[in-house]
């Protein structure tokens, strides 16, 4: 490698190694020492029913968020990709604006909507559909709603860029051959935008998995997830070893899903290009 290349890359590499990689590795080490075996800390973490429940809740929320954003994102992005000119621009701004708005603001809006005296309860009470307010806030559902609101624009953006590259002639060809629109959608369009689906799903799943603000504001103390548990163990309780164990569990789950979804996406993509070749 050229000397100049080293000179250009070195400052960044050094900073990342000293300020990121080293602290992360340092955080990992104590979780394997100090117990009877190297996995003692993990054994005790996973033996707590509460912790296991939190892991499952975290995963459940991430999965649901991904599925709902996909369900809403696929038609929305299809619609946007068929628009052009001024409307497309206006709608792109509407989609982009929430992404760039503070997460506290976005979750705060849902506190207003879901709270005991919130918009939904007020409305239902006024219409005499219910007599006492429903518990909507501080539930898993609230976290999922908040996370969907947070990540839907990201899913839409990934899907729109995929749809835009789509060859619409293939779609038309299938329709000319007499396939029903719904069949065309699942058999022709979905496989072609699989890359966008997977990119969007990775971003949304990992984002929802590791999100802190949404479960903190909309989940309350009863509905903890790994991120809020990590914050509680470290900042509130000062139990650093437990917090580190949680950090590793969270990081590992995030990495595994990223690698797995990337791998599936590549396999599907290769299969698609293979089909076209034949």
């Amino acid at each position: 490698m050229k000397k100049r290349a080293v000179l250009f890359l070195l400052p960044g590499l050094l900073l990342i190694f000293i300020l990121l990689i080293y602290p992360v590795i340092r955080m990992f080490i104590p979780t394997f020492t100090g117990g009877q075996t190297i996995f003692s800390n993990y054994q005790s973490f996973f033996s707590s029913e509460n912790n296991v429940q939190i892991i499952f809740r975290t995963l459940f929320i991430a999965v649901m968020t991904t599925l709902v954003t996909l369900g809403l994102g696929l038609p929305t992005a299809y619609w946007i990709s068929r628009l052009s000119g001024r409307w497309r621009k206006i709608i792109s701004i509407i989609v982009l604006f929430p992404i760039l708005t503070n997460a506290v603001v976005r979750n705060f809006a849902w506190i207003m909507i879901l709270g005991k005296n919130g918009v939904i309860n007020n409305f239902l009470m006024k219409m005499h559909i219910i007599s006492s307010p429903l518990t909507l806030l501080y539930t898993n559902l609230a976290i999922i709603i908040g996370a969907v609101y947070l990540f839907l624009p990201i899913m839409i953006t990934s899907l729109v860029s995929s749809y835009t590259q789509l060859n619409s002639e293939i779609e038309e060809a299938a329709e000319v051959l007499g396939s029903r629109p719904i069949v065309v959608f699942f058999k022709i369009i979905i496989p072609q935008i699989s890359v966008g689906i997977f990119t969007g799903s990775i971003l949304v799943f990992v984002g929802a998995l590791t999100a802190y603000t949404t479960p903190q504001l909309l989940g309350g103390n009863k509905n903890m997830v790994l991120a809020t548990l990590l914050q509680q163990q470290s900042i509130t309780l000062g139990d650093w070893t437990s917090a580190s164990v949680i950090a590793i569990v969270l990081t590992v789950i995030a990495f595994i899903t990223m690698i797995a979804l990337n791998w599936v996406s590549k396999v599907i993509d290769r299969r698609n290009s293979h089909e076209i070749k034949n």
Binding site: L20, M27, Y212
Partner: peptide, 21 residues
């Protein structure tokens, strides 16, 4: 390596930096 800060959960980065730095 240069993109790695985006791969590690932000809350984990915050916690690790707090401990070390």
């Amino acid at each position: 390596i240069f993109l790695s800060p985006a791969l590690i959960p932000e809350i984990v980065i915050g916690f690790a930096l707090y401990q070390t730095l």
